[in-house]
Design a protein around this nucleic acid. Structure first.
Lengths: 336, 336
DNA sequence: GTGAAAGCGCTAACAG
DNA sequence: CTGTTAGCGCTTTCAC
């Protein structure tokens, strides 16, 4: 097996440069020569050495996926598995490699970012689920590293992003609850330092305002998207006697339903519960959960495509994309 | 910001080599010089160029995680998210980067493997959940690329691996069911071309044999670890009238429980159900699921540590590891 | 169309 | 202890 261009060149009876031209699909090579070279390459199972190539072209064909996320969420939330699936699919198609960086809680963020951003081994990065105030974001804006945020950041409007239309999704769901006759609609929000948490909360408020229902702080509790936090938030909301609860994730809905059961309340007879994500557990809960469906796979694909287009056509301005959602009505909600 | 060793060297008033020595922590540098160089490096926020380094050292500090897995399973199974979490944690600690390769169903496996294995950008690879007959495995054995299988492959005993003790886990669980008085214990197996599917089935058979219960084909149906396949397998098992069912994954248990409910059978009053994995849904099912707990995070950590030790000390023989499991008894099983 | 030669940024002998 | 030098394998001028 030939390891270098030089060896392939010798076997094909041409120069190193010609082999390089063939590999890089440059037109200025006689068809007959091109054929001969390809035959040798295939016969020898030759693969160009990426590092050598990267050293001169300054491109690695590697994109990074940075997930600065607490452990708990990654564990329970299939969102990330699906997102990665979508990203990986596009990478495979387009000839890119995917480098995964999980930002763990206890590590030195600064060293981490430098290592990731300045090591020259990433052509660009995708940043998923970064808190709005994550120090990575300004650093990204200074650096020259092309990047796309999965989930926009209103404080940095110049960084390209793709997102799901969380406001509309949450508003539609809340409107649906109100349409069922509920007036005391509680919400368990996600962390309000994330765009997702904030926007789903915003959608909830918009629906209330639209229906001219006064906003009531007692009907709002914050969680962190995990089941456990949903359980605890629901306990805090009980005294406010909501007739419906919108939790900003299905996992939190699951926790909320357990808290309600523990308090002797039935779903949906006493309290309607709705979630967000349409995660696999949504249909398994008892009763099956009304929720908002979004396609994390699709989001991953669009994110990767956007980044790759940015890398390959830096001048063409990027259309930023907000994916739409759909309401999935199951049995956990009912007419008041 | 200095981009190259040369620039740092000039600023520090030393030669390129000295800077290189400082960066690579070689002892033969005067402390005073070392200090001066570090100061410049920090001030300039200098990071060595990985490609240049890799070109000469032949090491990239990147390890690959290859997951040749069908779409359905990645979506629903938190096993992978946890496995990745464990691997990423060790990579972060030990200064390695993680490259993720999802092997999608429709792609050209051959080209994929060559691209991954021969591009020279991976110091070693971790292979998770490969089917026993995956063409990657023999290819891996031929290639010089150090690798560790997550899940052993009995046909290739020479490839290092780490694994969970699936036989014992399944046997313990089945013994528990038998201990509750069940004689007609059905099983929904995983795919029998995976080591996991095979070993959990083997554990089931061992427990039956131990209790001198005759093995009955009518009490066995194969699934593919997904909820849906569990549902369909359970439908096929109904006519055999089992009093207990052991499904080789929690997701399949969930499907089985739905099929039972649809047939008008109650869990655990009419049929006991037990799963495997202790996935997040296990405790959310109604009733909460008796299952076998294994730590996918731990497995990921051990896998990454094993590979890294293999890379850094190729001569030291590796102790292969089988992680143990524990039985988690909840409400889906009861005395017959 | 094709080859010769330079050089990407780094490490690793080899001198001193 | 430190500097000089020679590549690592590739792409990319520049000649021809």
């Amino acid at each position: 097996m030939a390891q270098t261009l030089e060896e392939v060149a010798k076997l094909a009876g041409v120069s190193r440069s010609t082999v390089s031209r063939v590999i890089n699909d440059q037109p200025s090579v006689r068809d007959e020569v091109r054929e001969r070279v390809w035959r040798v390459i295939r016969a020898q199972n030759y693969q160009p050495h990426q590092a050598a190539r990267a050293l001169v072209t300054r491109r690695t064909n590697v994109i990074g996926l940075i997930i600065p996320e607490t452990v708990a969420r990654l564990f329970t939330d299939p969102f990330f598995a699906q997102l990665i699936q979508g990203i990986a699919e596009v990478c495979n198609q387009r000839g890119y490699y995917l480098m995964l960086s999980l930002m763990m809680a206890r590590m030195d963020r600064d060293a981490f970012y430098r290592r990731i951003l300045h090591s020259g081994q990433l052509d660009g990065v995708l940043v998923a689920s970064a808190p709005l105030d994550d120090p990575l974001i300004p650093r990204l804006e200074e650096s020259v590293c092309p990047c796309v945020l999965v989930g926009r950041n209103p404080d940095h409007p110049n960084i390209p992003w793709v997102d799901v239309d969380n406001v509309t999704g949450a508003r539609n769901l809340t409107e649906y609850l109100i349409g069922l006759g509920h007036r005391r609609v509680a919400t368990i929000t996600g962390p309000l330092n994330t765009i997702v948490g904030r926007e789903r909360f915003e959608g909830y408020r918009q629906a209330l305002a639209q229906a001219e229902i006064a906003y009531d702080d007692a009907l709002v509790a914050a969680g962190d998207f995990t089941e456990d936090s949903g359980f605890r938030a629901m306990e805090r909301l009980l005294h406010a006697r909501p007739t419906a609860v919108f939790a900003a994730s299905d996992a939190m809905s699951a926790g909320a339903m357990q808290a309600l059961a523990q308090a002797g309340l039935r779903v949906p007879a006493d309290v309607s519960v709705a979630g967000y994500d349409d995660a696999p557990i949504a249909s398994l809960l008892d009763p099956p959960l009304t929720t908002v469906r979004q396609s994390a796979v699709e989001l991953g694909k669009v994110a990767a495509e956007t980044l790759i287009r940015l890398l390959e056509n830096p001048d063409v301005p990027m259309p930023l994309q907000k994916l739409s959602t759909s309401l999935v009505i199951r049995d956990s909600t009912r007419q008041l």
